[in-house]
Amino acid sequence: MPAGRDTPTVIVADDSAVVREGVTRILTSGGFLVVGQARSADELLDMVSREQPALVVVDIRMPPSQNAGLLAAERIRERYGPQVRVLVLSQYLEPDYALRLLGAGVEGIGYLLKDRVAEASELVDAAHRVAGGGSAIDPDVVAELVRNTRGAARLARLAPRERAVLGAMAEGRSNRSIAGRLRLSVKTVEGLSAAIFDKLDLQPGPDDNRRVLAVLAYLDHRD
């Protein structure tokens, strides 16, 4: 896809050249304009302040310290707010990282396992969602939350289809996206979603992002 006026700009940060190049290629062919590649957290922060990109795709592990990538991501969220969205690529299947990163809000934030780089479409999909102000939580991370037996016990009252919709909601997908993924109509998804919120005694949020937070909080709740 040729870069146009509306093509979102992105900076890719990873200390591995192979991954950097690979992600750059995938995003470029996915409709992004890669305006910079950073090898370290400091380089990334430097580049962001210069380029003010729409999106940053950053490896959680980067020099100098082990989780410098994560710290840089948090710094960028703090400093630029919704102007620069952040998609973190992580080696860790640790919901705590994702939840902490989400912090107060999920607008324009993503936490994806690095394995997704091997599935170009998933990466591009998540990048677009985040760049568009939405959120993207890796399905495996959501599964990790759901597989928590306590949560599973509480989710037992949901029908299998409702559980699938709940998982997709936790990933940060919109009803339309869920419908496309589960091959259901948008109307059906809306109905299922209402049923889920009713069964779990959750307040339906005014927007998708609030909905993600409510669902994640519900899944992570330990009482």
Binding site: S16, V18, V19, G22, R25, I26, Q91, K114, D115, V117, A118
Partner: peptide, 10 residues
């Protein structure tokens, strides 16, 4: 190792 595997995947 992981980066190598990722490279192969790509």
């Amino acid at each position: 190792t992981q980066h190598r595997l990722l490279g192969i995947s790509m």
